[in-house]
Amino acid sequence: TDVTFHVNGRNLHLKGADEELLRRIEELIRRGADIEELEKAVKEWEK
């Protein structure tokens, strides 16, 4: 799945995201995470 999140005026584009990653990103956004936290979560998922 390709999806782009718009967070605090910045874009986080995910290519090939699975349901697990999407749920994790949505949860972080609900908690008020900043873009750096979201990018870190994506990097951890990519490993």
Rank of each mutant, 00 (worst) to 15 (best):
T1P: 08
T1V: 14
T1L: 13
D2F: 06
V3R: 10
V3M: 09
V3P: 10
T4R: 04
T4H: 11
T4S: 09
F5M: 07
F5A: 04
F5R: 05
F5Y: 10
F5S: 04
H6G: 02
H6C: 15
H6Y: 11
H6Q: 09
V7S: 02
V7A: 02
N8T: 02
N8P: 01
G9Q: 02
G9P: 00
G9Y: 02
G9A: 01
G9M: 02
R10H: 15
R10G: 11
N11D: 14
N11Y: 15
N11G: 04
N11I: 15
L12A: 00
L12S: 00
L12T: 00
L12K: 00
H13M: 09
H13I: 14
H13L: 09
H13V: 15
H13T: 15
H13P: 01
H13A: 05
L14M: 04
L14D: 00
L14T: 01
K15S: 06
K15A: 04
K15V: 10
K15F: 09
K15E: 04
G16P: 01
G16E: 04
G16Q: 08
A17N: 03
A17W: 05
A17L: 05
D18C: 06
D18T: 15
D18H: 10
D18M: 04
D18Y: 02
E19Y: 12
E19A: 15
E19D: 11
E19Q: 13
E19M: 13
E19I: 13
E20G: 14
E20C: 13
E20D: 11
E20A: 14
E20K: 14
L21V: 08
L21H: 01
L21E: 01
L21A: 03
L22G: 01
L22Q: 03
L22C: 04
L22I: 15
R23G: 07
R23A: 09
R23L: 08
R23Q: 07
R23H: 08
R23P: 01
R24I: 09
R24N: 07
R24W: 14
R24P: 00
I25F: 04
I25E: 00
I25Y: 00
I25R: 00
E26R: 15
E26K: 15
E26Q: 13
E26N: 12
E27A: 14
E27N: 12
E27H: 12
E27T: 14
L28Y: 09
L28M: 14
L28K: 05
I29N: 01
I29Q: 01
I29R: 02
R30E: 07
R30D: 07
R30I: 09
R30G: 09
R30M: 10
R30A: 10
R31S: 09
R31G: 10
R31Q: 11
R31K: 10
R31D: 08
G32K: 05
G32S: 04
A33K: 10
A33S: 08
A33D: 04
A33Y: 14
A33W: 13
A33Q: 06
D34R: 06
D34P: 05
I35W: 11
I35H: 03
I35M: 11
I35G: 01
I35K: 01
E36I: 06
E36W: 09
E36P: 12
E36D: 11
E36Q: 06
E37L: 09
E37Y: 08
E37G: 07
E37H: 08
L38N: 00
E39C: 08
E39D: 05
E39I: 13
E39L: 14
K40I: 13
K40F: 12
K40W: 12
A41S: 07
A41M: 09
A41F: 14
A41N: 07
V42H: 03
V42N: 01
V42P: 00
V42Y: 03
K43A: 13
K43L: 12
E44I: 13
E44Y: 11
E44S: 11
E44A: 12
E44Q: 11
E44K: 09
W45D: 03
W45A: 05
W45M: 05
W45Y: 13
E46C: 10
E46R: 14
E46L: 11
K47N: 11
